[in-house]
Design a protein around this nucleic acid. Structure first.
Length: 766
DNA sequence: GAGCACTGC
């Protein structure tokens, strides 16, 4: 596994390269034998209660296709997109609506939803359920005067769906049809169909625990089982009892006047579980529009999946008609290595074989490169896309006819019991059946396709049916804190899957150390303040603590970058050294947090410089100057501009909580009278973070290694950190991730005396 | 000595 680039390049010249030592004994066959399993479809466990709503073909009901995919939301939008160019005339949009597979079941669907409080809809890809169901409900009057909410796990889905549905309703976006996602909302008092992220509706729960303004809540992509979806489902079950429950004797039926309807939409196999959770709610099945995908399994499991993927690619390339190939791999490292191998061998193909164009797609790669997967291959060229799970749900790539599925992915898992404050693992593991079906569905978007699985049919059957819900694999600190604000306890909530008691206790301990709850487990005033921030409790705590050090402005800058969704630094293996060189000027001796602040300040100066020359067209100039500056420094502009949005949002939260966010170390007047307690700038900032990250701290040992202060583990500083190789008495870190070893990432020096004063601080509180 | 994917009044 430990390969430098040099070693790697050498190895890629050998056809049978050993990716890891454990593969040494294996004698790979030159040609992978494939087993055709088209007629041996996986058992889907679909015992459907109730109607198949568009059942013109009763056989389909017994034998659904493999290729459910779960992002029908985005799919239906994207599928329809090409048609939007010509038919902006209302009739053709209405024609399109009528032609969707779901349209013929419309009346049946509406009647079922009208008759039941809770309905579970199982819809295949391209059925149009996400765009049509809300409109059917609205048009049939089921929703009364209330708002129909449709939740989505991802922001882009919510906004693009709302755009499409507004078009179908022939109403400008933000009126009848609107959306609400972080940093962006378009809706008004007349909005009746509202697409929103699941995170947003969970936030709304805090202000309105009964979600009283919604008459219908549609939980889409429920099978993804995000933490927020699970919390929402639990709350919906509770709300149903209140709003739809029997009228209490003597009380006037106020609860009947505002009943709630819940529609749970899923694209995979666990419809029964949702049904059971809502006491046997009716399951309706909607047929999709998906081309057949022929599935091949390898006769043997391919242990060296990178090598097997390469051989499979060339088998396809040489034997099969043109059509792009999508290869699913677990991570960046494998993608970079496979891309190099494929490019190497593509140069040595015999005459007459088409050219190969490779492109890679993973979250850490910069957007411009990622977007290359969308451009069509030149004539007589086959495009080969190497992607992580990002291509499984989030993004749909056109032109794919062949999928190669390694059967692996990386998954983050929170181990509450390990290493003090918990430990995130990021390890390669086998995918699930529904993930495998999702991946193969990617080959059938535009026509019949082929899916090559680098594992046996038996391995497929041995896979978990669906992924573990997020709630059992994540830190719960943030959710517990939010629930405490509603006087709710996570452990008392009726959840579909309850998290481990260890996980709850570890999160409670974290919250106690942050001062968010007291010794009796009661929410503190500080805890209430922390909960107001859309931040991990650790960073909300740092912001709250910064009041006392007079550096809220700086802490907000750093926290905003840390909590942005994309990484600040662009990391390309071949350019690591030049990137480190050009970014050296940002380095701060205390480590990564202050270094981040330096980057933010420098970025802001680029903007300020360009503002000096004002006039028409300056905006674009400024934009391109920023872009160029980021490119030059291997910085991700998306991260910086998102951080800017987050900062603005955090400022408004500060204002509501009477936290002065303008308090800055640079605007201090007198040493004695300000809030900084006389600390130097960096020390004030790091002490603020120290409060949030006390659990994430380590002391230097005599042998030069670091050991956790609140846990048993030895930790290494991640090589990407500015603190790597440095020896300071104590460090704090943003996270601890176990990959090949336990690495601390986002590391800073913390003043020696901090922890003794912190301990005293804790005792005072207790 | 090296990073799966999402999200937040």
């Amino acid at each position: 596994m430990v390969q430098t680039n040099g070693q790697f390049k050498q190895k890629s010249h050998q056809l049978w390269r050993d990716k890891s030592k454990k593969n040494q004994q294996r004698k790979p066959s030159k040609h992978i034998p494939w087993v055709d399993v088209e007629d041996d479809e996986p058992k889907t466990n679909l015992k459907r209660h109730g109607a198949m709503v568009n059942g013109d073909n009763p056989n389909r009901r017994k034998k659904p296709r493999h290729s459910y995919t779960n992002s029908s939301a985005r799919e239906s939008v994207q599928n329809d997109a090409p048609n939007q160019a010509g038919p902006s005339s209302p009739t053709s949009i209405q024609e399109q609506r009528k032609q969707l597979p779901i349209a013929q079941g419309r009346e049946a669907l509406v009647e079922e939803i009208r008759a039941n409080d809770v309905t579970v809809l199982l819809g295949e890809t391209g059925s149009g359920k996400t765009t049509q169901i809300p409109q059917y409900i609205f048009e049939s009057g089921i929703a009364g005067t209330g708002v129909i909410a449709i939740t989505q796990p991802r922001r882009v889905a919510a906004t693009s769906l709302a755009t499409r549905v507004a078009l179908e309703q022939e109403s400008p976006l933000g009126k009848l049809v609107g959306y609400s996602v972080r940093f962006d909302e378009k809706y008004n008092h007349d909005t009746r169909i509202k697409y929103m992220t699941d995170g947003m509706i969970v936030r709304e729960l805090l202000a309105d625990p009964n979600l009283s303004k919604y008459s219908v809540v549609i939980v889409d992509e429920a099978h993804e089982r995000t933490l927020r979806t699970d919390l929402l489902l639990a709350n919906l079950k509770k709300i149903l009892k209140t709003r739809n429950g029997p009228v209490a004797p003597g009380a006037k039926g106020k609860n009947q006047s505002n009943p709630l309807k819940v529609v749970v939409m899923s694209a995979t196999l666990d419809a029964e579980k949702f049904s059971a959770f809502f006491s046997g709610a009716k399951i309706l099945y909607i047929q999709g529009r998906q081309h057949p995908v022929k599935i091949y399994h390898s006769a043997e499991n391919q242990i060296d999946y990178v090598d097997s993927a390469m051989r499979t690619f060339f088998q396809i390339h040489i034997d099969r008609p043109l059509g792009d190939v999508l290869i699913f791999l677990p991570g960046q490292e494998d993608i970079e290595s496979l891309q190099a191998s494929i490019e190497h061998f593509a140069k040595r193909l015999p005459e007459g074989v088409p050219e190969v164009l490779t492109c890679a797609m993973y979250a850490a790669q910069d957007q411009r490169k990622n977007s290359q997967v969308f451009s069509a291959a030149p004539p007589n060229t086959r495009k080969c896309i190497l992607a992580t799970n990002i291509a499984e749900t989030s993004i749909t790539i056109p032109g794919v006819k062949y999928v190669i599925d390694t059967g692996k992915c990386k998954e983050k898992q929170f181990l509450a019991r390990a290493a003090g404050g918990g430990l995130d693992t990021l390890l390669t593991r086998d995918i699930t059946q529904s993930s495998a079906m999702q991946r193969c569905g990617r080959a059938g978007r535009e026509g019949a396709g082929f899916c090559f699985r680098l594992y046996t049919d038996k391995s497929f059957k041995d896979m978990e049916v669906s992924a573990q819900p997020e709630i059992v694999r994540c830190s719960l600190a943030s959710s517990i804190l939010q629930l405490r604000c509603l006087d709710l306890h996570l452990e008392e909530l009726d959840l579909m899957d309850a998290p481990d008691i260890d996980s709850i206790q570890s999160s409670l301990k974290t919250l106690w150390l942050l001062g968010a709850i007291d010794n009796t487990g009661k929410l503190t005033q500080a805890g209430r303040e922390m909960a107001a921030f859309p931040l991990e409790p650790q960073y909300a705590c740092a912001v709250v603590a910064s009041k006392n050090y007079g550096c809220t402005s700086e802490v907000l800058d750093i926290v905003a970058v840390i909590s942005a969704s994309s990484k600040l630094y662009i990391d390309v293996a071949e350019q690591r050294e030049s990137a480190a060189e050009v970014r050296r000027k940002f380095r701060h001796p205390t480590g990564d947090h202050m270094t981040t602040l330096n980057v933010v300040r420098a970025y802001r100066e680029v903007t300020a410089d360009k503002n000096v020359v004002s006039g028409p067209g300056t905006g674009n100039k400024e934009k391109s100057a920023k872009k160029e500056w980021c490119r030059k420094h291997f910085l991700n502009e998306q991260a910086l501009s998102e951080a800017n949005d987050i900062r603005k949002q955090l400022e408004t939260v500060c204002e509501r909580n009477n936290i002065n966010h303008t308090l800055s170390t640079t605007s201090r007047t007198s040493q004695k009278d300000d809030d900084s307690k006389g600390y130097a700038e960096d020390e004030a900032i790091l002490r603020s973070f120290g409060h949030g990250l006390a659990e994430n701290s380590a002391f230097l040992q005599p042998d030069g290694s670091y050991k956790q202060t609140m846990g048993p583990s030895a930790v290494k500083i991640h090589p990407s950190s500015t603190m790597c190789e440095k020896k300071v008495p104590a460090i704090i870190y943003d996270e601890l991730v176990y990959t090949n070893s336990i690495y601390a990432r986002g590391v800073s020096y913390i003043p020696k005396g901090f922890f003794s004063s912190f301990a005293a601080f804790q005792q005072r509180k207790a």
